[in-house]
């Protein structure tokens, strides 16, 4: 697992209080990991802080799964 992927997963485990095994690439924050709208906002903010990036709202809307978050951040950090 890439460094980015493991850090993303650690944030999700911490913020959503879910088991690490559930945080698979295709898992949806809301449908699979029990996040509500406020949790989703908090996750995006944590990604921004952890990786020192800005995720504009219109792009944040497209990040709804673990894999999408990892790809977005990997792209942003290139």
């Amino acid at each position: 697992m890439s460094d980015i992927a493991s850090r993303v997963k650690a944030i999700i485990v911490d913020k959503l209080g879910v088991d690490e095994n559930e945080v698979v690439t295709e898992a949806s924050f809301t449908n699979d990991l029990g996040a509500d709208s406020l949790d989703t906002v908090e996750l995006i903010m944590e990604f921004e802080k952890e990786f020192d990036i800005q995720i504009p709202d219109d792009q944040a809307e497209n990040i709804s799964t673990v894999g999408q978050a990892i790809s977005y951040i990997e792209e942003a950090k290139k």
């Binding site: 406020l38 949790d39 906002v41 908090e42 903010m45 921004e48 802080k49």
Partner: peptide
Amino acid sequence: PRFNPFFIP
């Protein structure tokens, strides 16, 4: 202003 979304609620 990077407030946590849970701040107010």
